[in-house]
Amino acid sequence: MTTAPRFDVLAIGNAIVDVMAAADDALLAREGLHKGGMALIDAERATSLYAAMGPAQEISGGSAANTLAGLAGLGCTCAFVGQVADDQLGEVFAHDVRAMGISFTTAARPSEPPTARCLILVTPDGQRTMNTFLGASQFLPASALDASLIRDAAILYLEGYLWDPEEPRAAMRAAIDAARSAGRKVAFTLSDAFVIDRHRSDFLDLIDQGQIDILFANDAEIQSLAQIDSFEGAVAAIADKVPLLVVTRSADGAIAVRNGERFEVAAEPVDKVVDTTGAGDLFAAGFLAGQTQGKDIETSLRMGAIAAAEIISHFGARPTVDLKALTAQKLG
């Protein structure tokens, strides 16, 4: 008999500190950056780009960790597995995660490379251009996993970004096996079209083998996964293969498809879009919070939209208000 879980969600993802600065289109052009995109960079490029940035602020980030921050703010019990180095940014990341009440017990890596960082340039239209140096995060070994911790979570949440390096990929495969053997659900976020381009066959295999219970994507990602240049066509191609598909569409809201039934929600209005960093991460947080709290699909979608709207109204990918109170107010 399956025992009641201690955690609502356990996430495995990149342990990253975001370094954010305002920028104009001219800077993006000079640096050869694709506006609104995400690129992986090496240590040398991280140094040169940081030198070109204006005044910056450091905020703990990472896609899955951002989602947990939202979940914790919505009253969920959470745990995180990710690799930092034994350095200053590693201490910053660990402190920030634990300060939110999230369990984080992964031992710091004692040697090079340093803790991962994401250099984010935010243009006046709120678009964020991300340049990620993965550093220590790409060396998360399967040995860092605690199978009992995975079995103790109702949902295992995996970040597609972390599928790229070999060691974390093996760790996530082991985590999926542990979660499924314990009768827990597995949620997966596709993260970015460039990740899908590199690992499409792996992701489709996971879906076809019934390893994914909840799949998160945005409109570009679902089309990339299905290799269909049509939103509706891509949704139709993937929805029948996964128990629950959730797709965000920026200003056009979001949809979910479960057992052939489609649900839709409009985007929550915001006075001004300041920074879109973390919008998808917080949407996933709201939706998963709704699901772990027994809400229906429509309510869960609405919770995701509320959390996403809060995050794009300010700099940074971590909530700045009481999400639980905000959601209760918005839902009535």
Score class of each variant (00 low, 15 high):
residue 256 A to V: 05
residue 202 D to W: 15
residue 217 A to P: 00
residue 248 T to M: 03
residue 197 D to I: 14
residue 207 I to D: 10
residue 197 D to Y: 13
residue 190 L to Q: 04
residue 245 L to S: 12
residue 244 L to D: 06
residue 247 V to M: 09
residue 201 S to R: 15
residue 242 V to W: 03
residue 259 N to I: 01
residue 254 A to C: 07
residue 237 A to P: 00
residue 259 N to T: 11
residue 208 D to T: 02
residue 204 L to S: 01
residue 241 K to A: 14
residue 191 S to F: 08
residue 194 F to I: 03
residue 264 E to H: 03
residue 205 D to A: 12
residue 251 A to K: 11
residue 253 G to I: 12
residue 215 L to N: 05
residue 215 L to Y: 09
residue 187 A to D: 07
residue 187 A to Q: 08
residue 187 A to Y: 08
residue 252 D to A: 08
residue 204 L to V: 06
residue 214 I to T: 03
residue 230 S to C: 03
residue 209 Q to V: 03
residue 193 A to S: 03
residue 265 V to W: 00
residue 254 A to G: 10
residue 249 R to W: 07
residue 219 D to F: 01
residue 185 K to Q: 14
residue 247 V to R: 10
residue 213 D to Q: 07
residue 258 R to F: 09
residue 199 H to S: 14
residue 194 F to M: 04
residue 213 D to N: 10
residue 223 Q to C: 08
residue 216 F to Y: 14
residue 260 G to S: 01
residue 262 R to Y: 13
residue 215 L to E: 03
residue 256 A to F: 02
residue 238 I to M: 02
residue 212 I to R: 14
residue 241 K to Y: 12
residue 223 Q to W: 01
residue 259 N to C: 05
residue 238 I to D: 01
residue 200 R to K: 11
residue 251 A to C: 04
residue 255 I to A: 09
residue 211 Q to R: 15
residue 218 N to F: 09
residue 190 L to K: 07
residue 231 F to M: 02
residue 246 V to C: 06
residue 195 V to N: 04
residue 244 L to E: 11
residue 192 D to Q: 13
residue 261 E to P: 00
residue 206 L to W: 15
residue 199 H to V: 15
residue 207 I to H: 11
residue 224 S to T: 15
residue 230 S to N: 10
residue 252 D to L: 09
residue 257 V to S: 07
residue 246 V to N: 05
residue 225 L to T: 15
residue 235 V to L: 03
residue 228 I to C: 05
residue 263 F to S: 04
residue 207 I to W: 13
residue 194 F to W: 08
residue 210 G to W: 11
residue 218 N to H: 06
residue 198 R to N: 12
residue 225 L to F: 15
residue 212 I to K: 09
residue 195 V to W: 00
residue 230 S to F: 02
residue 231 F to H: 04
residue 220 A to P: 00
residue 229 D to K: 10
residue 249 R to S: 01
residue 216 F to N: 07
residue 236 A to T: 12
residue 186 V to Y: 11
residue 194 F to Y: 10
residue 188 F to M: 15
residue 223 Q to L: 03
residue 246 V to Y: 07
residue 201 S to E: 15
residue 246 V to M: 05
residue 212 I to L: 11
residue 197 D to F: 15
residue 263 F to K: 00
residue 226 A to P: 07
residue 259 N to G: 04
residue 197 D to Q: 15
residue 243 P to S: 04
residue 227 Q to C: 13
residue 217 A to V: 05
residue 226 A to F: 14
residue 227 Q to A: 15
residue 242 V to M: 04
residue 235 V to D: 07
residue 201 S to C: 11
residue 206 L to H: 10
residue 225 L to C: 15
residue 252 D to Q: 12
residue 186 V to G: 13
residue 246 V to R: 10
residue 254 A to K: 08
residue 253 G to C: 13
residue 213 D to M: 06
residue 221 E to N: 06
residue 199 H to N: 15
residue 242 V to L: 03
residue 190 L to T: 06
residue 187 A to V: 05
residue 260 G to V: 01
residue 196 I to R: 02
residue 186 V to H: 12
residue 250 S to H: 06
residue 205 D to L: 06
residue 221 E to M: 04
